[in-house]
């Protein structure tokens, strides 16, 4: 690797700084929108170590990648450390990017792997395991529903702030690999194929785990929202 390949970062002119700050603010505020325009990256420039191209990648992807890492870890300081480490590894391993996936898919795979390793190291375990998730799926007898689902109370569903808290609590309880798939597929809205590439599993495996995760989330929320269950027992 060339020495001080990121020297451009030290040498930003005031004009460049102004442009950079404007771009950063625009990126952060656009992250609040549901579908910000997707930036395009100059792959050839990145592969030959172009500094401006890498800076653009960092500026554009930091907010979204940080959100994914934070949702996996739930710890602001550690999430920022992992974000930085992700870009460092991406920078140092750029020559290993084979264009078999999108650049962002490759980048997110690095970030997710680092976040999961951090989670295992810290031993912050989820409260549910695979067997719990299995038990939270509906039961069938001879292919038919064993029990009819309770209807959800529209009044309880309408309490938006309570709803956010309950959903957040339920997601946090999921086993780590289920939670990661929910974050990537249902929250960040990556495609199933992208999620499969990020996690190194098949698309079918993503759909199976996603389905079980959604079933478990539905079951936990059912304890709160159904007419017959006035308490939030499932989320306590």
């Amino acid at each position: 690797m060339e020495p001080d390949r990121l020297g451009f970062l030290k040498m930003r002119s005031p004009l460049c700084n102004l442009f950079y700050m404007a771009t950063t603010k625009a990126t952060v505020s656009s992250a609040a929108n549901s579908s910000p325009p997707k930036p395009e990256y100059d792959l050839e420039a990145l592969l030959r170590g172009d500094e401006e191209a890498f800076e653009y990648l960092v500026v554009q992807e930091s907010p979204r990648l940080y959100r994914v890492i934070f949702r996996i870890l739930g710890d602001e300081e550690e999430s920022q450390n992992i974000l930085q480490e992700t870009f460092l590894q991406a920078f140092q391993r750029m020559d290993t990017f084979r264009k078999e996936s999108k650049l962002t898919t490759w980048l997110y795979a690095i970030g997710i792997n680092l976040a999961r390793a951090s989670l295992r190291k810290s031993k912050r375990l989820s409260s549910l395991n695979d067997q719990d998730v299995e038990r939270m799926q509906p039961s069938f007898s001879k292919g038919m529903f064993l029990e009819s689902p309770h209807h959800w109370d529209p009044l309880k569903l309408a309490e938006q702030s309570d709803r956010h808290r309950l959903v957040h609590q339920a997601i946090v309880k999921l086993p780590e690999d289920y939670k990661t798939i929910v974050i990537l597929r249902d929250i960040e809205e990556h495609s199933t194929d992208e999620v499969a590439k990020m996690l190194g599993i098949t698309s079918g495996a993503v759909r199976v785990r996603l389905h079980r995760a959604r079933g478990a989330l539905r079951s936990m929320l059912d304890a709160h929202f159904s007419h017959s269950n006035p308490s939030s027992e499932g989320l306590s």
Partner: peptide, 27 residues
């Protein structure tokens, strides 16, 4: 509901800190 389960608050200077880290370490 999962899709709308709340915004993640981005740390101030998130990008700036990341770039500073890279300046120090990407050699």
């Amino acid at each position: 509901m999962t899709r709308c389960c709340g915004e993640v608050k981005l740390p101030e200077e998130l990008v700036e800190h990341t770039l500073t880290f890279l300046r120090k370490n990407a050699k």
